[in-house]
Design a protein around this nucleic acid. Structure first.
Lengths: 150, 150
DNA sequence: TATTGTTATACTCTATAACTATA
DNA sequence: TATAGTTATAGAGTATAACAATA
């Protein structure tokens, strides 16, 4: 193809792999967004519900820290989830500045239904893969989660 | 073919895997954006340059189709790359409505430099991984690219 | 009339800075 | 003062609809 041979010296440090993974993530993210059905949870909403589901009730600031977004961004995300009836706010015992966010029964139910937390197109595609390919993806998810946790 | 046996039983329904992959992609995308250094190419810009690099000169419409974005979105992306001097437009032979987009020498050079096409944080993290873990990511990239091509 | 590319407009997700209520 | 959360504002990145130039 082109003059990419010049980059080779750094290939074994992970540079080339990092670029490839980034391209793949950018493109898949775009695709998942485009294929996102009306009424389904967005990826960002699913992520917040997943975190609440794993950690139990959190304050907005704690949830923002878990999700690695800033408090003002969390304010808006909370508003969308609250409006949809998926989470509720309780007053914080002992500090009236804070709230506790909690999944509602509806939020728990919706979150548990794959149709709302995945994208139909993607689900179908993954179902067509060979078992070894799905295992590769499952293993990669663990590796990336480890990387992103640091 | 790495570490298949380490994968825990429940990667097998497909639905759950799709949800897990989506969460991972959403979170990593967000992180890559947040860690994106000033002066570096954004993921979206890198993706367009990568496609031009692989396919050679394309019209805006063709590039938009490759990138799976709409023409108006491509117009804006082209403007940013042209302003940065990374691509140029030529008149299309035989159809004055169209243009041909091509990497400039600067675009080729910048694109080939890992510092501009990856994110330092991510590059460092991947370099810390075990070789088998990097192999898992490389294999997953291929699987996802196959999925996204369909 | 059909197609290419652009402009106008709007929505989502993100950020920083400034404000408010409470501690 | 200091902290939790919100509001104001802005900037990517995306879309659809309507337009101008060309075929």
């Amino acid at each position: 193809m082109s003059t990419l041979d010049e980059v080779r010296p750094q290939a074994d440090t992970g540079s080339d792999l990092a670029g490839q993974v980034r391209l793949t993530v950018v493109r898949l993210y775009r695709r998942l967004r485009a294929e996102h059905g009306p009424g389904a949870l967005t990826g960002v909403q699913s992520s917040a519900l997943d975190t609440l589901s794993r950690h139990g009730p959190l304050t907005p600031r704690e949830l923002a820290a878990c999700e690695r977004i800033q408090p003002p961004t969390m304010t808006r995300l909370i508003a969308s989830l609250e409006k949809a009836g998926l989470i509720s706010r309780e007053s914080h015992p002992g500090d009236r500045r804070q709230h506790l966010l909690r999944l509602t029964p509806l939020g728990t139910k919706v979150f548990a239904e794959a149709a709302y937390t995945t994208t139909h197109w993607f689900d179908l595609r993954l179902a067509e893969l060979a078992p070894e390919e799905r295992a590769t993806l499952a293993a990669a998810v663990e590796v990336i989660n480890k990387v992103a946790a640091g």
